[in-house]
Design a protein around this nucleic acid. Structure first.
Lengths: 217, 217
DNA sequence: AATAAAATTCAACAAACGTTGAAAGTCAAC
DNA sequence: GTTGACTTTCAACGTTTGTTGAATTTTATT
């Protein structure tokens, strides 16, 4: 059969993950029904439960799928930035850049999947119910490596200051990738939430300046 | 009757708002049922619909109730900081401080209501579904006044830079007040998400340094 | 004390929810 | 081509959902 429909190409299991990713990003865990996921994926209702156990299992699978990829990319960027640095090790700017640049590389290049995924992570990160548990589980092992690198670049920093600075970075980052459209309305179109390159180019110096003011003693 | 139960004191309509505030903050709009709200408020199921029309009306009422108070407090803080400043107008640090300090004043002083409210706002701010619309509606008229003040303190700033800087501030702020507990786990207890004073004292210089690096030309 | 208005309860609706056991289909290995 | 292991569908289950019309109680006004 020579049909060009999207359905025939990818496997059903992946189509379910894609549909769930999109819907969870837009409406949150409780705002999406298993029926809606099945409909969007073009699949029977029961199939999601078969593959992922239950709704929560599906949610975890969506989060895990790209977390592994992102963590690897970020780790590679960190090690490359260390290798390129001179004897004194990488600068604060370089480390922050290694943390942010991989999101841009995947993020806004005609890849809807990654864009939805970052929207979902933004929502999870700020949610009381899951923010602590899930972000810790999926991202903090890597985040610790970045904080260790920052400790070397800022040898006199108080640990508590360093963690709070990362927290502020995390907040700025996730809100930016949430794509809520708020900055468009606030600025009357002068700043655009779709302009990820502009956001990235500003976030690196903004955050690095904060780190240095608090931690460079 | 001389009973000291909480029920008898406050009016039912306020009890519904309080219960909804707590529950929406923890579980989001779709994670809370009208029955759960009624139960928590100690009130009949139908009463919430009677007072607020429907579930969405209840949600809006919860958001609006404290937004008005917070906006007034922030406006007063901004004008006080302008009055106290010399001829050159307030510094960036002073303006940022006027924006953040009111949340601390209300926020963590044994007042659970405000704490839950800020958790709710954090969640709304990062949600694709509500973030653009609701935050704009309830907070942006005031935010524009703060940005105008920042424009005067940073006369050579590009407008787009200014809006992005505020966006980063907003992200750092809302995540911090979301109280997800993530920073506790990441830092092994060195930094505590309940320590709002510590967060506040660090956020002001962190954010102000970012503004100056990007906007002070 | 009678009256009108507002507040609250009761009971029920149809619709949507997550999950599951059993049946049917698909596919590769032998 | 028969077997056996996955995959997918079908049909239904018992709950829970938001909302509403009618009845009841409370409150304020006369």
């Amino acid at each position: 059969m020579a049909d060009g429909s999207q359905k025939s190409k990818t496997k059903r299991k992946d189509r379910i993950l894609d549909a769930a990713e999109t819907l969870f990003a837009k409406h949150g865990f409780d705002g999406v029904s298993m029926r809606r996921v099945a409909e969007e994926a073009g699949v029977d209702l029961a199939l999601s439960s078969y593959h992922f156990g239950n709704k929560r299992g599906l949610f975890d699978a969506v989060l895990l799928r790209r977390a592994e990829v992102l963590n690897e990319t970020r780790l590679a960027a960190l090690e490359r930035c260390k290798a390129e640095a001179g004897e004194g090790g990488p600068t604060v700017d370089a480390i922050i850049n290694a943390f942010l640049e991989p999101m841009l590389a995947h993020g806004y290049q005609e890849d809807e999947g990654w864009r939805h995924y970052f929207e979902l992570v933004a929502q999870v990160n700020s949610s009381f119910e899951w923010g602590g548990q899930l972000m810790t589980k999926y991202f903090d092992p890597l985040v610790r490596k970045f904080i260790d690198a920052l400790k070397e670049a800022l040898p006199n920093a108080e640990p508590a200051d360093l963690y709070w600075c990362y927290h502020f970075l995390s907040g700025a980052l996730t809100l930016t990738f949430a794509h809520t459209g708020r900055i468009d309305q606030l600025s009357d179109g002068i700043a655009k939430s779709e302009d990820m390159v502009g956001a990235y180019e500003r976030m690196v110096p903004f955050v690095a300046a904060g780190f240095r003011r608090l931690c460079d003693k």
